[in-house]
Design a protein around this nucleic acid. Sequence first.
RNA 1: GUGGCUAUAGUGUAGCGGCAGCACUAGAGACUGUGGUUCUCUCAGUACGGGUUCAACCCCCGUUAGCCACCCCA
Length: 417
Amino acid sequence: MFKSLRGTQDILPEDIKAWSLIEDISRKKLAVYGYREIRTPIIEEAGLFTRSVGQDSDIVKKQMYSFQDQGGRNICLRPEETAAVVRAYLENHLDKKEGFSKLFYIGPMFRSERPQAGRMRQFHQVGVEAIGSYSPYLDAEIIILLDELLRGYGLSENTFKINSLGCDKDKEAIKKFLKETFKGEVDSLCDDCRRRYETNILRMLDCKRPSCRKVLSSASSLESCLCKDCSDDFDKLRQILDDLGLRYEVTPNLVRGLDYYTKVVFEVVTKGLGAQDAVAAGGRYDNLIAEFGGTATGACGFAIGIERVIESLSKVAPPGLEEERGVVFIATLGEEAYKEGFKILKNLRSEGIPADIDYQQKSLKAQMRYADKLKARSVVIIGEDELKSNSALIKDMAGSTQKSVALPELTEELKKC
RNA sequence: GUGGCUAUAGUGUAGCGGCAGCACUAGAGACUGUGGUUCUCUCAGUACGGGUUCAACCCCCGUUAGCCACCCCA
């Protein structure tokens, strides 16, 4: 027997309701905010991500599904979509056509991590990318949009964490500052932090070990490393969010794992998710467009983890009941009646009335039981007697009443109920 | 990738080194052609591969998968 690959799952009909709900709410809200959908390929040139996400990031180093295709090209399954959207933006000259673009996507991403609750190897994101502005108002809009989306899904207990990494120069300055500050204290840090000191020094700030926290606390006020512009913009963003009444926490140790982030970064954690509690995250990436060969311009975006939203939703709110289709069930007795019933079935469906029939020609009792399971609103019953009089019985399942109707009037009659 | 825990019908769960039970679900039926309640019957299981033993679902090892934490991230 074949099984789905590790870290992948089938989304069954019974689960689909939650998924389409999230997709529908997202599309509606994103349209209100002026975002337009973009779909990019699932496979991309691997270099797209090594360049943008970062050579040293875990995503690139050990989580990408990469392979060589028949032409010897290095291909990978996209581990995230920001880089792909920027690639598409430049490749299709959106920068020339519209200058400022608000784009969103919904789709699967792939990372070969060890699976655990809220962490799949194929997972799905709804994300937005607004390209073409440096304004803190855009940052604010995006954070507000994220808040509205999450609330729209039904997630209300969200904590917004924000921080500023500063521009490219500031980021370098911060790294250098950290390198020098902790030069003499590397030995007192945990194994992970010693590794981070070499590979991704910013991540050290994220360490949860109390001993490391103690050592690192002296560096927690990185805001002092920001240049005036970055610091002013961060202040401005906070001011806007305050004015709009969005609650957030400034989290100085919030660092994103993707290299392209600059200036403001944010993350939303929600309840009921265990260790993988970030439902959404994002930030600015003002260098990426130029990095990919475009004219330097600002950009900002986020991605929401759909599985995590659903997971969290299932903890806070029980799933709703199955939607009523108001289906009409056709029950027949005998071959001739079945033929007639099959015609009626086709006519009802042509009229847009949901209708079903049994394909095994079971006993009437079994057909009725099946009709009940389908939550049929009415059942059309045709047997020998009905065929003789060219009529059918319509049974109302809720009221348990039935009446005889001439076949030519059947569809009209069923439309009424 | 590291560590820990777990694995019994489709689902949820008992059990014992010696015939694997229960509930739900599914299917059939309870006087000729009528659902929901009730009753009866039926289908269906010890994840996989080794080992110990007269005998393994049970003990041991490995594999796989899931869960939890780390790591990382959505």
